[in-house]
């Protein structure tokens, strides 16, 4: 990447995005946001920061591409299989004691993790009494969750992850292959509620037994991390579970005192008060 952006330029862009469109990137971690902006400029062949700013200000139709570009949409099914194995073996039996299970996948991008969880629930015979809320700030990726169509090229990797997570079935029984795409069974989707939700600006909307927010907080500064964790805290049932990314931690955060480690290596915490 050729251009080198300055902090003031990043601030200028985030101010414009907020003032004109209400998207608040102000408390995104600077180092990665800077990389995202430079990447966006490279991909869209925008030669200078001034031109990027002009485009953002004068072309509202460019906004979805900007939001798509500034947010990271890398995810996979059963990412970190050991985490899903723990959920399968020790979290699901606890969830099963609830008559009805509400799950929130916050910032879930294209939804691979939501489908993974739906598969676990189905195998535990819990899917019919569960609801999976899948949210992301980006309306483009939300549509992909609804479609339930994922690249066929990923299926070998996902199948291996699935087996490592303790899956016993033939993974291909969950989808229909068509050309280069795998379309996942409608019954997995039937228990999903898919919606846009911005963790920065939107509020709590329900009470959940488990919240997944993996590899989202890494893009936020500590102040915003604390705000979002407070939102999760307000949205979790007593004794609810919080699942973060494998390199994220509740330690030193404002809500740490209300949680005890359930599986430290898998970054699963349980609400205690």
């Amino acid at each position: 990447m050729g251009v080198m952006l300055h902090d003031e330029e990043i601030e200028h862009l985030t101010t414009v995005l907020y003032d004109l469109y209400g998207y608040d990137f102000n408390h995104y971690a600077r180092a990665s946001l800077k990389r995202r902006v430079m990447r966006l400029m490279t991909i869209d062949r925008v030669p200078s920061f001034a031109e990027l700013l002009h485009k953002v200000k004068t072309e509202p139709s460019y906004l979805p591409q900007v939001v798509q570009g500034l947010t990271v949409n890398v995810t996979e099914m059963f990412r970190d299989p050991a985490v899903f194995k723990t959920i399968r073996e020790t979290v699901l039996p606890v969830l099963a004691t609830h008559p009805f299970i509400r799950i929130w996948h916050a910032g879930c991008s294209t939804g691979e993790e939501v489908y993974s969880m739906a598969i676990l629930l189905e195998e535990a015979n819990l899917l019919h009494r569960s609801l999976l809320y899948a949210t992301d700030l980006n309306p483009v990726v939300i549509e992909q969750i609804k479609n339930g169509i994922f690249p066929m090229s990923q299926m070998k990797n996902y199948s291996e992850n699935y087996i490592l997570s303790g899956g016993k079935k033939d993974f291909s029984s969950y989808y229909t292959a068509k050309y280069n795409w795998a379309k996942f069974d409608e019954r997995l989707k039937s228990r999903m509620i898919v919606s846009t939700h911005n963790l920065v600006s939107d509020r709590s909307f329900n009470e959940f037994q488990i919240i997944f927010c993996r590899n989202v907080l890494i893009y936020f500064d500590k102040e915003l991390q604390d705000r979002v964790l407070t939102l999760f805290d307000e949205s979790l049932d007593q004794l609810g579970f919080l699942v973060l990314g494998t390199k994220e931690n509740l330690r030193f955060t404002s809500i740490a005192g209300n949680y005890s480690p359930f599986s430290i290596k898998d970054k699963i915490w349980r609400k205690t008060s």
Binding site: A29, A31, R35, V72, V74, I218
Partner: peptide
């Protein structure tokens, strides 16, 4: 993960 330097005192990670 990509490993980034947020500022003189802080690392950050990026899963892009």
């Amino acid at each position: 993960y990509h490993l980034l330097i947020e500022d003189e005192r802080t690392f950050s990670l990026d899963s892009s």
